[in-house]
């Protein structure tokens, strides 16, 4: 428990920063811009009326697109990048702290199993993720009520919003893996933000190229938010991929953490 409390004390400011950032992003995008988006429905429909009906269907333009959920699917990438950056940062920082401060011997010489240390650290990161996404979910649902959106229903919208937490879990696990495997760590901010930006850039490939194979390398795309909105399901294969990636990254990190030699 000591390690959990210590790590939490060192991390809570960063948890707060992440939570506030995400709450602001959600409030600005969902609360500030959704009404404008919704109002543009008439103009877009006017333009569409001039085309053959098949056209709208071919380009995936539906009435649903103008719902709150449709807008959420558009701005999901902004929420995902914030989540990814903070997730990666926390994983890197918490699991790399002793390497960064060069005090590995101090921690490892305590009468606690390394496995126990690893999971206490993991629990701290998980705490941050749960808090950040809990607050984000609260803000998103509050905005949903206050703009009077009815579609999608609460349950379905929560499932859509959970994609953001899923992305964060993946990046936190990757961050932890890198922190444990790296022989030396000097600075984690650049690494964490780099991972997040990489995820953002890769997420542009599948929609731009219509090539679904690219989804495999784009963690943001593992959660198909627009399919969740229109059909109420995520793509099972990618959901399994996301889960497997988390589990494998954590398992490898755990084994490496427990077995590796410690450099004083």
């Amino acid at each position: 428990m000591n390690v959990y409390l210590f790590e939490f004390r060192r991390q809570w400011r960063s948890f707060l920063a992440g939570t506030l950032t995400q709450a602001i992003v959600a409030a600005v995008f969902l609360g500030g811009m959704y009404p404008m988006y919704h109002d543009s429905q008439k103009d877009v429909e006017k333009v569409l009326a001039g085309f053959p009906p098949r056209f709208a269907a071919a380009f995936g333009i539906t009435k649903d697109m103008f719902s709150f959920g449709g807008f959420f699917a558009f701005i999901y990438v902004y929420l995902a990048i914030v989540a990814a950056i903070f997730g990666a940062l926390w994983g890197l920082k918490v699991f790399g702290r002793e390497k960064l401060d060069r005090c590995m011997d101090f921690l490892i010489s305590k009468p606690a199993s390394r496995m126990g240390l690893f999971w206490q650290k993991a629990l701290v990161v998980l705490t941050g993720i749960v808090v950040m996404n809990g607050v984000f979910l609260g803000v998103a649902l509050w905005v949903r009520t206050s703009v009077g959106a009815t579609s999608p229903g609460v349950g379905q919208f929560v499932l859509m919003a959970l994609a953001v937490g899923g992305v964060q879990l993946i990046f936190a696990a990757l961050g932890a893996l890198i922190a444990v495997l790296a022989p030396r760590l000097h600075s984690v901010t650049g690494l964490g933000v780099g991972l997040g930006i990489l995820g953002f850039v890769l997420s542009a490939l599948p929609p731009m190229t219509n090539e679904s194979n690219f989804k495999a390398i784009s963690p943001f795309s593992y959660f198909n938010v627009s399919q969740m909105q229109t059909q109420g399901t995520y793509e099972t294969g990618y959901l399994v991929t996301a889960g497997a990636l988390c589990v494998v990254a954590l398992a490898v990190a755990c084994v490496a953490y427990v077995r590796s030699d410690v450099k004083a």
Binding site: M33, M36, D39, S40, V47, F51, I75, Y78, A204
Partner: peptide, 18 residues
């Protein structure tokens, strides 16, 4: 046609949607 549709959105929304 798709350009026409996109242009029907307000610029702020277009910018946010990339």
């Amino acid at each position: 046609e798709i350009t026409d549709v996109i242009n029907a959105y307000p610029p702020l929304v277009r910018a946010v949607m990339g």
